[in-house]
Amino acid sequence: MAQRKNGRGHRNHRAAVATPGSPSTTASRTLHSVTPAGDVHTVVVPEASIWGRRRVLLLNSTYEPLTALPLRRAVIMLMCGKADVVHDDPVGPVIHSATRSISAPTVIRLRTFVRVPYRARIPMTRAALMHRDRFRCAYCGAKADTVDHVVPRSRGGGHSWENCVAACSACNHRKADKLLSELGWSLHTTPLPPKGQHWRLLSSVKELDPAWVRYLGEGAA
């Protein structure tokens, strides 16, 4: 296979997928990657649409959750020897190469430790807030589908972990711009910002693979 070079004459290590309409893409796609040592890996992947749907949990070598990777990137890391499979999907698609066949991974782990910069406060997103409140309304306990400001913004409330809770549509509509004291309502728990590196992952992922939960702490349950 001809190896492409960038402007500085170095090999391009990014994966390339066979173009649509070629024989390899009729029922599958062919993925090529070049390792730093110059070795070329080729794998045939069924159902090309799985590249866009599937995400793989990446763990540090210490099993600390780092991020959710596209399946394509996770496969390349396995091929290049940078990570190992922790969990795979036994009923999922099988990825074939010239020397091995692996089930599509759901969790992989780095072989070497990566230091993560410390960030004290977790950014608040709708996904993370729902995980924090376990997808339950803070007022009635029903299934939550909205976010409510405990002190309405129209009355000076901020958009923060301490002033936002998950709520059902009925409670959110009934509360409107009123204070809890005006309704005679109370919160069962005090809303606080979550702690732990895994919450950065939860802030960006809406749906979790069941195989991930054991690595993401109580907030993912």
Results as ranks from 00 to 15, higher is better:
D88G: 11
G92Y: 09
V91S: 14
A104N: 07
R100D: 15
F113H: 14
S101D: 15
T106Y: 00
V85S: 03
R115T: 11
V107D: 01
V94W: 02
R100K: 11
G92D: 02
D89K: 08
A120Q: 11
T106E: 00
T112Y: 06
I108Q: 01
H96T: 13
R109I: 04
I102A: 12
R115P: 00
V91L: 11
H87C: 13
G92F: 08
T99W: 09
A98G: 15
S97G: 15
A120D: 12
D89T: 04
I102S: 09
V107K: 03
S101N: 11
A120R: 13
S103T: 12
I95E: 07
T99P: 01
V107G: 03
V107R: 01
R115S: 09
V86F: 03
V94Y: 03
P105Y: 03
R109N: 03
I108L: 01
V94A: 07
I108R: 04
P93S: 02
A120S: 11
V116I: 09
V116R: 02
R111W: 00
H96R: 15
I95H: 03
G92M: 08
H87Y: 12
A104V: 14
T99S: 14
P117C: 07
S97L: 02
A98V: 10
T112F: 06
G92H: 08
A120T: 10
I102R: 12
V116E: 00
S101R: 07
R119C: 09
Y118E: 10
R100I: 08
T112V: 11
I108F: 05
S103V: 07
V91R: 13
R109H: 10
V107P: 02
L110V: 05
D88A: 10
S103K: 13
V107A: 04
Y118G: 02
L110P: 02
R121S: 13
D89L: 04
R111N: 12
S97F: 00
P93H: 05
G92L: 02
G92I: 05
V86W: 05
P117W: 06
D88N: 10
I108C: 04
P117H: 06
R109M: 07
I102W: 14
S101Q: 13
H96A: 12
S101W: 00
R111K: 15
R111Y: 01
S103A: 13
R119P: 00
I102C: 10
A120H: 09
P93L: 04
V85N: 02
R115M: 08
A104H: 10
P93G: 01
R109T: 05
F113L: 13
R119Y: 10
V116F: 01
V94S: 05
R109Y: 08
V91G: 05
P105W: 02
V85W: 04
